[in-house]
Amino acid sequence: MVTQLISTFTWRSLFALQVPIGLFVLYCLQTNDGSEEIRKPIKIDRVGSVLTIIGLTTLILPIVKSGDWGFTSSKPLTLFSIALVLLTILIKRSLTLDNSPLQTQLFIHRNFSLACAMSLFAGIAFYAHWLAILLFMVEIWEFTLIEAGLLLTIMPASMSLFSVWFGKLADSRGYRPIVIPGLITYSLLFLIMWVNIDQDPQLLITIPALIGSGIGMASVWPTLTSIGANAIGDNSISSGTSIIHTIQRIGGALGIAIVLAVISGLSGSDTFFAHRSAILVMPIAGAMTLLLSCFLDAPQRDFR
């Protein structure tokens, strides 16, 4: 659907699509609950929210614009410095505030901290593969957006096939027996794709990598929320899962930024080499997620 919109209209239609979706979600959130229970008002840390938004923006923007700015010119160095200062202030504030966006008190739980770190690298990998593979198919193999989009549906299709089954196995056998094989499959198949891919379409290499991507997403993406939720108290589950999902989206933004930075930075010499190099982001980020998963405790052994 997305590729059809872009192909028929422009990229702007993709942003316009968010409006009816958002309105539908807003409608679904409406409730007729007439409960008169008095609830304690929630105080939002507005300063922390502003620090988070500006800090992450100044961190990600120079990565995206590295092809034009480089990394050593004054503009990216200034933005990186601003990001470092703002995010440092955010962390220091979070250590003393209960309503901080970071909720640092939750990070005393080992599995929760690991789930957050894994979410960052998994977000980088899982968001990067959508953009990197799409651009490779369109720019190098000269697929149409519709052809590339249809081929990419293999990833969510295989994810939907395995995710429920993997979830049941994780409940009965723990996290590592599910997460580790899934990440090995994901990283290895994308590494094989990176090694063997050529300028001519090679679906016998690409399709297994896309299936492996779905297996990796099915074994890791839903499980990360469970890992974090089981590591913390019941009264903090909403905050904890929100942090994990936020970090996943931050990782996603970084993954997209890194892919764009690699392609724009290397395109001057060889377009094929630049797009092929972007594929390497997935096995590297997958391997980092795999390394972190090796330190997970079983749910009943989550020590502080």
Results as ranks from 00 to 15, higher is better:
6 I>N: 11
8 T>H: 13
13 S>L: 14
17 L>T: 14
22 G>W: 04
22 G>S: 00
28 C>L: 15
30 Q>P: 01
34 G>W: 04
41 P>Q: 02
43 K>W: 01
49 S>G: 11
50 V>W: 15
55 G>S: 00
57 T>A: 12
58 T>R: 07
67 G>V: 02
74 S>P: 04
74 S>G: 06
75 K>Y: 09
76 P>G: 02
78 T>I: 12
78 T>S: 13
87 L>W: 12
88 T>E: 08
93 R>C: 06
98 D>M: 05
107 F>H: 09
113 S>Q: 10
115 A>D: 08
118 M>Q: 14
122 A>V: 15
133 I>Q: 05
134 L>E: 11
140 I>E: 04
141 W>M: 00
145 L>F: 08
148 A>T: 03
149 G>I: 05
153 T>K: 03
156 P>K: 02
161 L>I: 14
162 F>R: 10
163 S>D: 07
164 V>R: 15
164 V>Y: 13
167 G>P: 01
168 K>L: 07
168 K>Q: 13
177 P>M: 04
177 P>F: 01
180 I>F: 05
185 T>C: 11
188 L>N: 09
196 N>L: 15
208 P>I: 08
214 G>D: 05
215 I>A: 04
216 G>F: 03
218 A>Q: 07
219 S>C: 00
221 W>G: 07
224 L>S: 06
229 A>P: 05
230 N>E: 13
232 I>C: 04
234 D>Y: 08
234 D>M: 07
243 I>M: 12
244 I>P: 01
245 H>L: 08
247 I>C: 11
247 I>G: 12
248 Q>F: 12
253 A>I: 13
257 A>G: 14
258 I>L: 15
259 V>C: 09
262 V>R: 08
267 S>F: 05
269 S>E: 14
272 F>L: 00
278 A>P: 04
282 M>V: 13
284 I>M: 06
286 G>E: 07
287 A>I: 09
288 M>N: 11
294 C>R: 15
296 L>C: 03
302 D>P: 02
302 D>M: 03
303 F>L: 14
